[in-house]
Amino acid sequence: MGLYELLFRPHRHSAAIAKERLKIVLAHERAGRHAPDFLPKLQKELIDVVCRYVEIREDMIRVNLGKSGETSLLEINIEIDGAKPILAPALGLAGAATAGSRAKSG
């Protein structure tokens, strides 16, 4: 580090860091706040079912509860790109890139 940088290094105030950190952590916590209790269990059972047909990892399933106008939307995204089919080529999943499935509730 040169003398110039040492003397004129842009100094970031700690309050600005606090604000940034708070915004990130609260965005995360607010998103989780309205999730109903059954979502983690649903996600786990879905993984179990899908795993019977294709090899997927836990992070390849995303379960979200959102809102679209008056209706609640349960959105399930299962990424199976490159996932190996386990038994049945007859399932027709081999060529599919992403399967998105939407189910309405409430």
């Binding site: 105030h13 700690s14 309050a15 600005a16 606090a18 604000k19």
Partner: peptide, 8 residues
């Protein structure tokens, strides 16, 4: 800059 502002 050591403390969050009211606006923050």
């Amino acid at each position: 800059g050591e403390m969050l502002t009211v606006e923050d």
